[in-house]
């Protein structure tokens, strides 16, 4: 089974996020990064499938030079080789532009299965995987918790809302987006880290994968972020006064109308 796993490098979960001078991105000097959490689980799922079925995992990553760190870690965990979509033209894309680039890179690889995380911890669109499948004309399923290979088909357990689940069967080739926590993500061993240094990372530009630079990245996007900012948050809690019934009534109203969480 040949599997492509798409990974994204994102800021570490507890990294201090400083908005860049451009007002639309995070300043990346000294920014601690990691492989997007659900992508780590996608990678783990891919590696386990290859261990039981044979084949190889190819890591695909769109990112700048510094994404090399995330790619090396994926190789150290056990991926065979990597494709790094690394060119200024790829930057600034939305999910549609990124999915177009990933499609072109994976199309020529002849894989049976594509795995991605369910969404990125930074942009959080939750779009790239299914768009990639649609562009390839493949079936897809999202929020997958378990995978059982069956030859030409695959049986998967999908998480639904409110504690419900579903077993589905899809023909291969297919794309799955993986939910975090479906298994324990392995650590890279020292041997793996040493071995990763010798593994092949193919750096590609838009032209290398048959795309014009204006089809991807900022030029190829259909949505645009105009501003990134810290949401207004009052310093410390707003203390709600009154007897229990009055204070609670005010609180419930604020949770409904202001915070919009009820």
């Amino acid at each position: 089974m040949k599997i492509a796993v798409c990974i994204k490098q994102v800021p570490e979960g507890d990294a201090h996020l400083k908005i860049d001078a451009d007002g639309i991105s995070i300043a990346d000097a000294d920014l601690a990064t990691e492989i997007n959490e659900s992508d780590q689980y996608a990678l783990e799922a891919g590696l386990r499938l290859v261990e039981s079925q044979g084949g190889e995992v190819v890591v695909v990553c769109l990112g700048r030079d510094r994404a090399d760190e995330a790619i090396r870690r994926a190789l150290a965990m056990g991926a065979e080789r990597a494709i790094h979509l690394n060119d200024p033209a790829f930057q600034g894309g939305d999910a549609a532009a990124t999915a177009r680039a990933l499609t072109a890179a994976i199309e020529r690889e002849n894989v049976d299965l594509i795995l991605t995380g369910l969404q990125s911890d930074d942009a959080g669109w939750a779009q790239t995987g299914p768009i990639l499948a649609a562009r390839l004309g493949w079936p897809s399923a999202t929020l997958i918790m378990e995978i059982e290979p069956e030859g030409d088909t695959i049986k998967v357990k999908r998480e639904l809302e409110a504690g419900w689940f579903q077993w589905l069967r899809l023909p291969l080739p297919a794309l799955l987006t993986i939910q975090s926590g479906i298994s324990t993500v392995r650590y890279a061993t020292l041997k793996g880290i040493m071995g990763a240094k010798k593994k092949e990372i193919t750096k590609v530009t838009p032209v290398d994968i048959g795309l014009a630079p204006d089809e991807v990245g900022a030029a190829g996007r259909k949505t645009r972020t105009t501003r990134l900012y810290v949401p207004e948050k009052t310093k410390g809690a707003e203390i709600i006064e009154g007897d229990a019934a009055t204070a609670v009534a005010t609180l419930v109203e604020k949770l409904q109308k202001e915070a919009k969480v009820l």
Partner: peptide
């Protein structure tokens, strides 16, 4: 963080 988005 919050972000403002528009259609291109």
């Amino acid at each position: 963080l919050n972000s403002d988005c528009v259609f291109a």
